[in-house]
């Protein structure tokens, strides 16, 4: 199957990741802070989608950034056969998310119904909560790699090639994960349409 249409990368102003990483390797706190500000929103969103819990996503992302700080000197520039910083970093986040999810032994608070916020009438609020719970539950029950592949491509709008690189699989294998994930979600969320 052919690769999906590439999505334009987000334009980031200022020093590039590689430059910041070189400074971080020398212990520059301010460079690290810049890198955190730059990659925090996306990494947290991705982690929260994969794990399904804000608190655990925070832990995973925090751990990933601490690893960046500690191992900055070991990261190699892409010119010298190293990986792009973003590939390296998001791979760390992804692996930590999968680990967190495997270790989880409790129901995260996000899976408990939220109280009505008063903006809608009670019935609409309840329906919305119920739907959110169903969707989260369905995504949550996907096997780790299927869930990660689906989150990367559907919610994070990564290209199949990017997602495959992050997961360390071929594009074909990623597509197979996506097809199985979609089928499982369809069966769970729209069973009457089968």
């Amino acid at each position: 199957m052919e690769e999906r249409v590439e999505i334009a990368p987000i334009e980031i102003s200022g020093e590039d990741d590689a430059g910041l990483m070189q400074k971080i390797a020398c212990g520059d706190n301010r460079a690290f802070e810049k890198l955190v500000q730059r990659h925090l929103p996306r990494s947290v969103r991705m982690a929260a989608r994969i794990i399904g819990s804000a608190a655990e996503a925070e832990d995973a992302v925090q751990e990933a950034f601490i690893r960046v700080w500690k191992h900055a000197a070991e990261w190699e520039l892409p010119d010298t056969a190293g990986a792009q910083f973003s590939t390296w970093f998001y791979r760390i986040v992804l692996n930590l998310c999968i680990d967190h999810k495997r270790k989880r032994t409790f129901t995260p608070i996000e899976e408990i119904s939220e109280p009505d916020d008063g903006r809608d009438n009670a019935e609409t609020g309840l329906q919305r909560n119920e739907l959110t719970k169903r969707v989260r539950g369905a995504v949550d029950t996907l096997p780790d790699r299927q869930r990660a592949a689906f989150v990367l491509c559907f919610y994070e709008e990564r290209s199949n090639k990017e997602a495959a690189t992050l997961l360390g699989v071929s594009v074909k294998a990623l597509e197979s994960l996506l097809v199985r994930a979609r089928k499982a979600l369809h069966d769970k969320l729209l069973p009457e349409k089968q």
């Binding site: 706190n29 690290f32 802070e33 955190v36 500000q37 925090l40 929103p41 947290v44 969103r45 929260a48 989608r49 399904g52 819990s53 804000a54 996503a57 925070e58 992302v61 925090q62 950034f65 601490i66 700080w69 995260p108 996000e110 919305r128 739907l131 959110t132 169903r134 969707v135 989260r136 995504v139 559907f154 919610y155 979609r182 979600l185 369809h186 969320l189 729209l190």
Partner: peptide
Amino acid sequence: LDQMLRHCPVPSVNLQTLADKIMHRV
């Protein structure tokens, strides 16, 4: 199916607090 999946909001995280925590650890 896509509409249902898109409806699901991402669990919210306070980014500034998290950034502060990370910087504190560093």
